[in-house]
């Protein structure tokens, strides 16, 4: 994983596999608090406390095609190496929140990467899931969701590359 946008692409896949209808991605970049935090919240099927305790173990995975699952372990490793931590909050039947925190100025913090690109790829590939991106800095607060885009574009397909380009331009000029 080269950058945090890749982690977001990856972690959101977990929410999709959990059958989420709504996914909220929140990115907080605060120079004042020297904090970069990424949280992915969903209304998927959730996990039991036993499962939550195990998910950052690389040898824990729900899939049947292979025995290892590295998404959350890698996220945790990256956060801990950069003076931060990973927390997971989940309730069966309600949903899951995964939150990774990094020291913003920490030398080992991975770069953000192209967040707008990650968001647009997720939108285009999952037009039926309402995905919200909330980007907060010390001065700015920007939020966008599949539903708002659907409404503004009045039924134009969000998975059309031309439409995705426009959405990319709009999102990237705000974050």
């Amino acid at each position: 994983m080269n950058d945090l946008a890749m982690h977001i692409l990856d972690i959101v896949q977990n929410s999709i596999s959990a059958g989420a209808k709504n996914i909220w991605i929140e990115v907080l970049v605060s120079i004042v608090r020297d904090l970069l935090s990424i949280s992915v919240r969903d209304d998927g099927k959730g996990m039991t406390p036993e499962m939550v305790a195990k998910v950052t173990d690389p040898y824990c995975t729900t899939r049947t095609t292979r025995k290892v699952g590295l998404g959350l372990p890698l996220l945790r490793q990256g956060a801990e190496q950069a003076g931060g931590s990973l927390s997971i909050d989940s309730t069966v039947g309600v949903g899951t929140t995964v939150k990774a925190e990094y020291g913003l100025s920490h030398i080992d913090r991975p770069p953000m990467g192209d967040l707008a690109n990650a968001y647009v790829l997720l939108l285009g590939a999952n037009p039926k899931i309402n995905i919200t991106l909330h980007y907060i800095t010390d001065e700015n607060d920007f939020s966008i969701s599949t539903r708002e885009l659907d409404e503004a574009l009045d039924g134009l397909p969000l998975n059309d590359p031309q439409v995705m380009n426009l959405i990319y331009e709009m999102v990237s000029s705000n974050i």
């Binding site: 708002e148 503004a152 574009l153 009045d154 426009l166 000029s173 705000n174």
Partner: peptide
């Protein structure tokens, strides 16, 4: 013009 808001997107529609 650069697209910056939902309104700009509506105009492009």
């Amino acid at each position: 013009n650069k697209i910056k808001s939902l309104d700009d997107l509506r105009k492009m529609k």
